[in-house]
């Protein structure tokens, strides 16, 4: 078992290095992508900033607090896109019959699809998020205890896992529809867009949906309450790790979808 994990890890990094070498072949597109993402994200921050310069606070959250929330979600999303972009673009792999080749290799399908792409251009986004997070720390009076620092890490881990699960879920649907289901994009890009504010500002119904249908509040709202000192319940900081269960569910869907696979053409 240990031997197998070691060899899979080694192979994954080998895949990454090939994906990086491929990406570097297209320098212009690489830099344009980084710049484009930067502007898009900057746009997002400005939106939040203008909102707060007008209203002062939103449902009791200050600008600094929203910045903390926003930057963590952005970082989750950027990391997920970085690592899981093989699933994000899985529709084209299936449609062109490239998945045949994946099945012809004696390795786990998940590992191969993950290794097929690595969006290094998302690195820019991650740095930006770190910068914003630092600014959020400066302007909001959070008392950084050990528990709260760990909560940030658990939010990052859980959030990235959750977004990767969304990508995986959409990839699983691809086996049935041959196209990525746009509906799932509401979860991925919708969550990214609206995730800049804590979920409770969207009302009770949204809270329920984001807790029981998709475990979104578990990686955002609840741990944030603990982080911002609105509750003393330290275990809120552990909630994000529940995203692993959601990942398992999505993995199950993937396995189920794979059995439905009909390869394409000759």
């Amino acid at each position: 078992m240990g031997e197998k994990i070691k060899s899979s890890g080694k192979l994954y990094f080998h895949y990454l290095s090939v994906a990086l070498r491929s990406a570097m072949q297209y320098k212009t597109s690489f830099f344009l992508m980084v710049i484009g993402r930067f502007l898009l994200f900057f746009n997002g921050i400005l939106g939040v900033y203008f909102m707060f310069s007008r209203f002062g606070h939103v449902k009791g959250y200050t600008f600094g607090e929203v910045l903390l929330c926003f930057s963590i979600i952005q970082m989750d999303f950027a990391l997920a896109e970085c690592i899981g972009s093989g699933f994000a673009t899985f529709a084209s792999i299936v449609r062109q019959g490239e998945f045949d080749r994946v099945l012809l290799r004696p390795r786990s399908t998940i590992l191969q699809v993950l290794g097929s792409q690595f969006r290094i251009d998302r690195i820019g986004l991650i740095f930006q998020a770190i910068f914003m997070f630092a600014y959020g720390i400066i302007i909001s009076p959070v008392d950084w205890t050990f528990g709260r620092v760990m909560t940030v890490f658990s939010m990052l881990l859980g959030g990235t896992t959750l977004f990767i699960s969304f990508f995986l879920l959409r990839a699983a649907f691809t086996f049935f529809t041959l196209e990525g289901l746009e509906l799932v994009n509401i979860l991925t890009y919708g969550a990214q867009e609206h995730g800049k504010y804590p979920v409770d500002i969207y009302g009770k119904k949204m809270m329920k949906f984001c807790t029981y249908v998709i475990p979104y509040t578990l990686i955002q709202y609840y741990p944030l309450q603990y982080l911002l000192g609105r509750t003393d319940q330290w275990y809120y900081g552990v909630y994000p790790l529940c995203a692993v269960y959601f990942l398992l569910v999505c993995y199950g869907m993937w396995r189920f979808g794979m059995r439905h696979y009909q390869s394409a053409g000759s």
């Binding site: 192979l11 080998h14 090939v18 070498r21 491929s22 490239e98 290799r105």
Partner: peptide, 26 residues
């Protein structure tokens, strides 16, 4: 398996890089 209509090599890297990766895959 060789599919004449499709490639199994990595498109943007030298062939030897694909071979090295296959060495690890298998």
């Amino acid at each position: 398996v060789v599919f004449g209509q499709r490639s199994q090599l990595w498109w943007d890297v030298p062939v030897i890089d694909s071979f090295e990766l296959l060495k690890d895959i298998y």
